[in-house]
Write a protein that binds this DNA or RNA. Structure first.
Length: 267
DNA sequence: CGAGGTACCTGACAGC
DNA sequence: TGCTGTCAGGTACCTC
């Protein structure tokens, strides 16, 4: 499921395929997933492709932005010609046609995915709610400790998934970062030492960087444009029976989300 | 205001 | 085989 490293990987691939291309039209096949306004786009060039949290931002030369959220099962497929294969057609929610006859499908399996057209004010409003980017140089250890101290009674794993707290971390990387930092996912922030939180800040950043370097994690329905990532080979606890030190993994539910952790390593 | 719960969706899979 | 039930999970929205 796409979290920050998977979205970053997809953004890099989209840049190599469709940056500076001109959209001749975009056709919607699923009005639940795709903004109605998208059909107004004609003869617009994609001038920038960026990521913020788990959002993909395609900037158009009319200053509007196509904002895409893949949720769990959204994916893109690029076609050098207008021929679209049958598998892509089955889940196609939108299709971009470019003036050079290439095309891009946006496929939505679970229909949670969203593709919106936003003006600059709407974009600003959406992005302003998000917390800091964990890989941004300004996201220092001190910054993280300060944020943690603002909600001492919160459960640490819940907070890591809160996009207004830190942007881009999802269920898999939250669990993996906590394992590497040897922190129990049920701990309240005030019960975790500053030293451990410092380690957690470091593990969050390294785990995301390592995953980006490997093209992300490939589980269940996550695809990207050029094959798959292989960070799943480095997962320690997510959907595992034993941790790397051969201790049995425990499983519980927090806020309706599953959590895997090692009770031996994560006291 | 913050915290917690749930709806939204469909595919995969287990069990009968 | 084919049905039913459960689980997966990011975010918006609701209630307390």
């Amino acid at each position: 499921m796409p979290e920050l490293p998977e979205v970053e990987t997809i953004v890099q691939q989209l840049r190599s395929k469709i940056l500076d291309k001109t959209i001749s039209k975009i056709k919607s096949y699923d009005s639940l997933v795709v903004d109605k306004k998208i059909s107004y786009i004609k003869n617009q060039t994609i001038t920038n492709i960026t990521r913020r949290a788990k959002y993909i931002l395609l900037t158009l030369n009319n200053q509007h932005t196509i904002l895409v959220h893949l949720r769990m099962t959204g994916h893109f497929q690029y076609f050098p010609s207008v021929t679209i294969d049958k598998i892509s057609q089955k889940y196609r929610a939108a299709q971009f046609n470019f003036t050079d006859n290439s095309s891009l499908t946006f496929n939505a399996i679970r229909r949670f995915e969203r593709l919106l057209l936003l003006n600059p004010q709407q974009l600003q409003s959406t992005l302003s709610k998000l917390g800091p980017e964990p890989l941004d140089p300004s996201f220092s250890t001190q910054h993280f400790l300060t944020l943690c101290k603002q909600t001492p009674s919160s459960i640490i794993k819940t907070k890591l998934l809160d996009q207004t707290f830190i942007a881009g971390i999802g269920n898999i990387y939250a669990q993996e970062a906590l394992y590497r930092a040897k922190i129990n996912p049920t701990s309240k922030i005030k019960d975790i030492s500053s030293k451990s939180l410092t380690v957690l800040h470091h593990t969050i950043r390294t785990i995301l960087q390592q995953s980006i370097a490997r093209g992300g994690t490939t589980v269940n329905n996550y695809f990207h444009l050029d094959g798959s990532g292989d960070f799943q080979d480095l997962l320690a606890v997510y959907q595992k029976d034993y941790c790397p030190k051969k201790h049995p993994i425990a499983h519980l539910t927090q806020n309706g989300r599953s959590t895997y952790y090692c009770p031996t390593c994560q006291k």
